[in-house]
Design a protein around this nucleic acid. Structure first.
Length: 398
DNA sequence: CCTCCACTGGAAACTGCGGCAT
DNA sequence: ATGCCGCAGTTTCCAGTGGAGG
């Protein structure tokens, strides 16, 4: 009995591909960040006043996904902190994960050593406590707000406005902000007061080109993978595929990692080029799966309605009204109370946003204005995942 | 040039839940 | 015990809107 388990464990432990898979994980921050030297120098320069206990300027960082914004920010801060831990304190908040005003403030307080209930208080109360905490705190505080564009889009710039005013509520300036955003146009949509206060310094992260991506991959692969499992052509392929999508380093690393995982799963001793293509599909499938599984119930229902409509009528032109009809018939079939068309219209926009479908607004003259909707992913994956997530969907299709 | 379709998308408010302060 | 809070998903109401067909 136990030798079976030993066997399983040892085959799991002894990898013929990986030395340490962690070096290819998206949240790993390496010792060096190739091709980001300029940005590191600039940010470190702006933050240098921390050393004299003075308040650095606020920074706004722009760049597309996977251009190293988060990694560089964390890298500079943690290295500065290692050099003089008694001069300042920094807090990192990803506002996509921590995605409500309450939780953002609660996280900031937590990091300053103030524990707050995870619900129940008013936002105003949290601000009060935050200002008090900062006032009483003896050091400079640097607050990193990652992906604030998404946050501000869903709520508004109220938090930013109030946060940016904290310094004026305290006699002496003690808080600096680093705002990180994927959306270059985002800053223009801000309240001018917030804008001028928060973007005292601006830093742009350009996308990596294919050569730079290769370089990054090569360095990571050296640490993560055993020598000889990876050929140059595989690295070039991963880099090229990622470069095609605006030079996204995270995507490149994901491709490489998953390709290597496939090689391991197949008990191969080298990563073949075909595994990279398999990895690409697998990443896409997992992404779609994760999105669908976390969808609210009625969003799933809307998705099911679209697929059902497409199954019964191959070349159906899908419009909002159209989809709503299909939605009504499905919810009736399942005995579920239907939501309004207004809400379904928003759900369609949401499904568009997460990339499951494309909904573009068209004007069809005499025949009105509506959204034309088409699926952006393979409908078999949708059917499979919907059925898996809730067996009520099972008998909607043959 | 005007009409009028089939919606769009903004705004406000509601519901129901979990949970705090007092 | 009471009342107020945040939040997600939703309803209700409604003032637009671009262009095919007259």
């Amino acid at each position: 009995m136990s030798d079976i388990i030993d066997e399983v464990i040892s085959s799991f432990k002894v990898s013929n591909i990986f030395i340490n898979r962690d070096y290819l994980m998206p949240d790993y921050i390496p010792e060096e960040l190739p091709h980001r030297e300029d940005q590191i120098r600039k940010i470190a320069g702006i933050l240098a006043p921390l050393y004299r206990g003075e308040r650095p300027n606020n920074i706004f960082i722009y760049g597309l996904t996977g251009t190293g914004k988060t990694a560089v920010s964390k890298f500079v801060l943690s290295n500065l902190y290692k050099k003089f831990p008694n001069k300042f304190k920094y807090v990192y908040v990803n506002t996509r994960q921590t995605d409500t005003p309450y939780r953002v403030l609660a996280d900031l307080l937590e990091a300053l050593g103030v524990k707050v209930p995870f619900t129940g208080l008013s936002i105003a109360e949290l601000y009060r406590r935050l200002v008090k905490a900062i006032k009483e705190y003896s050091l400079q505080v640097v607050i990193v707000l990652d992906e604030i564009d998404a946050f501000v889009k869903k709520y508004n710039d109220d938090i930013l406005y109030r946060l940016s005013r904290i310094n004026s509520e305290i006699s002496k300036g003690k808080v600096s902000f680093i705002g990180i955003t994927n959306d270059v146009k985002f800053v223009d949509s801000l309240d001018p007061r917030v804008k001028s206060s928060l973007s005292e310094e601006e830093i742009v992260f350009p996308p990596y080109n294919a050569e730079e991506l290769e370089d990054i991959l090569r360095k990571r692969a050296q640490m993560a993978l055993k020598p000889g499992v990876l050929s140059d052509s595989v690295i070039r392929l991963c880099a090229a595929l990622a470069a095609r999508e605006h030079g996204d380093a995270r995507r490149a690393l994901d491709l490489l990692r998953v390709s290597a995982e496939i090689a391991e799963r197949l008990r191969d001793s080298t990563v073949k080029e075909e595994y990279v293509y398999m990895a690409k599909d697998e990443i896409e499938r997992d992404r779609v799966r994760d999105i669908i599984l976390t969808l609210p119930f009625h969003s799933k229902l809307v998705l099911a309605a679209i697929v059902a409509k497409l199954l019964e009528e191959k070349n159906a032109v899908l419009t909002t009204g159209n989809v709503y009809e299909a939605y009504l018939s499905i919810s009736k079939k399942l005995g579920i109370e239907a939501i309004t068309q207004r809400r379904v219209s928003d759900i369609l926009n949401e499904l568009d946003m997460v990339g499951l479908l494309t909904a573009r607004v068209v004007n069809r003259g005499r025949y009105g204005k509506t959204k034309e909707i088409s699926l952006a992913v393979d409908k078999n994956i949708i059917i499979k995942t919907l059925t898996e997530s809730d067996n009520r969907f099972a008998d909607l299709w043959g």
